[in-house]
């Protein structure tokens, strides 16, 4: 007997899966609305994406191909642990390639490669309530959603403008779904917000500690909140990726040495590797290749 035999498929018991599955169907039927569910203890601490893990465990089947990313990368401790967990408890096929995955569990990024019909993006969400920092009481935020009272959220964004001259919120930038619910897109950079709009993929959000599941079906309107005189804008980067030369992608700063050397590279590691495999090279890659050649000349 190996360890696997002692687990139910995908770790969760069938009753828990059924409860989460019912919550997912309601979430799809009411886009952007946070459906309460009875979150279970998972063999990993909160903050490790227990909400996303429970959603993935409830939808996953033997034919799925799973990709797990954390800050865009497949090789961080968090991503590696979750991927290994599902390999162990569901014996599921895994990949780092966005195009091959049927389910992508993510923390903090949406892949650069546009998602397709048949793919499901599962977000790990720490704080699902976009109004929480304005109003700590759940009964009150629920009322605000019920009555579509989102004025306070606009006031907060406008305070940003008067203080900074622009909307300073760069992560978890609130969106309105299908003209009705204001929703927290999870702590993804606002750079990724436009990717949620009319996506071909189904987007599911799981918050373990706060016990909420919500969803954005495919082909659903997702609009970032803004003002006529201060329209929503995504982050822009001055230079392309130093490794693959990609423009219009989200870049992370990488420190190269202790003398202030640094470069900006794709946060989406699969996208970067795929571009390099197809012959694209950024300034840093081109210059290191150049340097390597020099001694021979």
């Amino acid at each position: 007997m190996n360890d696997l035999a002692t687990y139910n498929f995908a770790y969760l018991d069938e009753q828990t899966k059924r409860m989460i599955r019912r919550a997912i169907l309601k979430a799809i039927a009411i886009p952007g609305y946070q459906v309460p569910f009875a979150s279970r203890e998972m063999p990993m601490p909160y903050g490790w994406g227990t909400g996303g893990v429970q959603v993935t465990a409830s939808i996953l089947g033997p034919d799925d191909v799973l990709k797990v990313i954390d800050q865009g990368a497949d090789d961080t401790t968090n991503a590696v642990s979750i991927r290994a967990f599902f390999q162990k408890v569901a014996n599921v096929a895994v990949t780092t390639k966005t195009v091959e995955a049927t389910i992508i569990q993510t923390r903090h990024r949406i892949p650069e490669e546009p998602l397709k019909e048949g793919q499901t993006l599962v977000y790990q969400v720490p704080i699902p309530e976009p109004l929480r920092f304005l109003e700590p009481r759940e009964t009150e935020t629920r009322k605000m959603h019920a009555l579509e009272e989102y004025g306070l959220m606009h006031v907060k964004l406008y305070e940003d403008i008067s203080r900074n001259g622009h909307i300073a919120t760069t992560y978890a930038y609130p969106v309105k779904v299908e003209g009705r619910y204001v929703m927290d897109p999870s702590p993804t950079p606002k750079f990724d917000n436009p990717k949620m709009h009319m996506s071909e993929a189904l987007q599911l959000f799981g918050a373990g500690r706060e016990k909420r599941i919500y969803a954005v079906p495919p082909f659903t309107e997702v609009v970032s909140l803004d003002f006529e005189d201060h329209p929503f804008e995504i982050q822009t980067f001055e230079k392309p990726c130093a490794l693959c030369g990609a423009e219009n992608v989200y870049l992370d700063e990488v420190v190269l040495d202790d003398r202030g050397g640094r470069m900006f590279v794709c946060s989406d590691t699969d996208h970067c590797e795929d571009r390099r495999a197809h012959g694209h090279a950024g300034s840093m890659l081109a210059s290191t290749q150049h340097q390597r050649k020099e001694p021979a000349e």
Binding site: E14, R21, I28, S58, I59, G61, L202, P217, P218
Partner: peptide, 19 residues
């Protein structure tokens, strides 16, 4: 086969509600 049958039926329902 209740575990895999329920998963498969659920996925069809999920996809059908999503589309």
């Amino acid at each position: 086969d209740p575990v895999f049958a329920a998963q498969s039926v659920f996925r069809t329902l999920m996809d059908s509600f999503a589309r």
